[in-house]
Nucleic acid binder design. Structure first.
Lengths: 125, 125, 125, 125
DNA sequence: GTGGTCTAGACCACC
DNA sequence: GTGGTCTAGACCACA
């Protein structure tokens, strides 16, 4: 049996995911300037180096770019952002179906549960 | 420095979830005797004290009971198990919809994505 | 006129190039274990973090891989190494021809100079 | 901590090389008057003192001479310029062969690579 | 004031 | 002892 009791997910990876979500969801708009590294670090209560590392990684993925001495910006590539958003949605969905499967629900049963939930949600609203 | 990044989730909590999942999914059947603590601890490659703590917690929730001198058993209360299973499914589902909402998909859009996914899944199969 | 009086090339980039050369030239053989990060850092008289960064980059390029708790190894992919070697050779060559062009030699003239040089070299030997 | 990583090459040395190249390549013609130090300094976006130092060095090497009250001129000694040009070419070439050797190519292999490259270059053109 | 880099020193998980 | 991560604090180039 494989045993990996959650070795702490590195902070910089958690930050990467958080920011990726902000960009994908449009909370950080394409082309928009982002806060200075040091301010971001304070906002996330993290060391500037850690933030720097996270942003460097996001830059490698193309979600952020740097203008020397001016600052960092969200990419202006709407298609890229859209792809990231789709990819995240897909990950969430697959993870959800996988969890349901572990609980013993096959896809059809899972769909039924979802539909019931949505129906009740609409009525409740 | 105080920060809000996931300090390790205590191992005993992780184990509780694992076992709860085994019971809810039927991998551990109702009324079935479970292995001695020490063996379970080995199986999970965990300290026996940690396993003991997890089992105690599960017992408080009624999912496990102890017969002195005989050992520990999964509850025989099928309804309780069924409720736990439903509850977990509900948690997964709410968490999923919540994530999708953070990504900017409302419930209708999310449903559409799910249906597309399921359709493609069936075709692919 | 563009002015960029060599801002120091970052040490970690210099190290990357040095190590890449060692691997491409076969001084570090494919599959061979490399020294621990901290020892390498001492050998290069550099901070361990700097060495770590360089090695991480090389790992992203596939030239190095890590076995947890065991150490780091040169890739076993001979083809990859061969490609890197070819690429470096090509870079050197293009840089050379480019320099000669700046000096006012076209490709034919450059070839002539090379051949003279090689001829003399052989005679001298 | 002492280490052997390229501390910035002094700017005046970089400028010397740049100007030497201009003279050797004929961009600055023999006997031609060169701009006043202050204008050159501006062109190179460099402190006038730095430019002065570079020109003084070039004068010591005979590539430049000063006529009091008139200004500075490129040497009229075509043979000297030609020699400098040859010497630079030779340096580039030796540096190139040396790099290739470090990569593990002997002179014959290097020649083969050059010829392949030139052949493809001509076809491509 | 901006990002980028480097050092020093520490802690952690894994074996 | 191995790699990986994090913090703190410093320095640099560029504009």
């Amino acid at each position: 049996m494989a045993n990996d009791y959650s070795a702490n997910v590195p902070i910089y990876l958690q930050i990467i995911n958080e920011i990726k979500l902000k960009i994908a969801s449009g909370e950080w708009k394409t082309g928009q300037r982002i806060l200075p590294v040091r301010e971001l670090a304070m906002q996330f209560t993290v060391n500037p180096n850690t933030m720097q590392r996270a942003l460097a990684e996001l830059e490698r993925e193309g979600l952020i770019y740097t203008e020397r001495t001016t600052g960092k910006f969200v990419t202006s590539d709407d298609i890229l952002v859209s792809n990231v958003r789709d990819m995240l949605a897909r990950e969430y969905m697959q993870s959800f179906f996988s969890s349901m499967q572990k609980l013993g629900y096959n896809m059809g049963q899972t769909m039924k549960i979802i539909e019931d939930y949505v129906t009740k949600y609409k009525e409740g609203k």
